[in-house]
Amino acid sequence: MNESAMLYNYLLIGGVLFALGLIGFMVRRNMIVMFLCVEMMLQGISVSLVAWSRFHDDWGGQMLVLFIIAVAAAEAGIALALILMLFHQSGTLDMAFWQDLREEDQQAFVDHKVPEDDDRDRIWPTLTPAGIEPEVDPDEQLHRSKI
């Protein structure tokens, strides 16, 4: 096999993955999605590392990837716990909510216009209701609708 070609291709793909993750991190506002984007950047790095590992015929790269996976797992655990907590406090996953942490005299960022919800973007398939409709806790309802 052409090892240098292999390296070239892998590095290209790793770079694309990294860049996509970076774009996602900077553009998306959902905290969980942002976190996934970070994981994607890690994947880009991992791909490059494995390629380098093969190119240099050295285990080091693969070892590093192994540790990346382990650290990513730890990170995911902590980050998800934190996100969950933040969500408990604010009731939203929007990163922009936490811009309160800015300097005192800075202008707040305000969404001027939110595009309308597209039907085709509906995520959950609706089930046909069956049986008795469960009684909904009004507080719970109120709270959920804010999400």
Partner: peptide, 24 residues
């Protein structure tokens, strides 16, 4: 990991999708 993410997502956001997901 991804399953955990999904789990958290479900936990936090079980219905609809938020305006902040629609706009970047």
């Amino acid at each position: 990991i991804v399953v955990t993410f999904l789990f958290v997502l479900m936990l936090a956001q079980p219905e609809g999708h938020a305006p902040y997901d629609r706009i970047s």
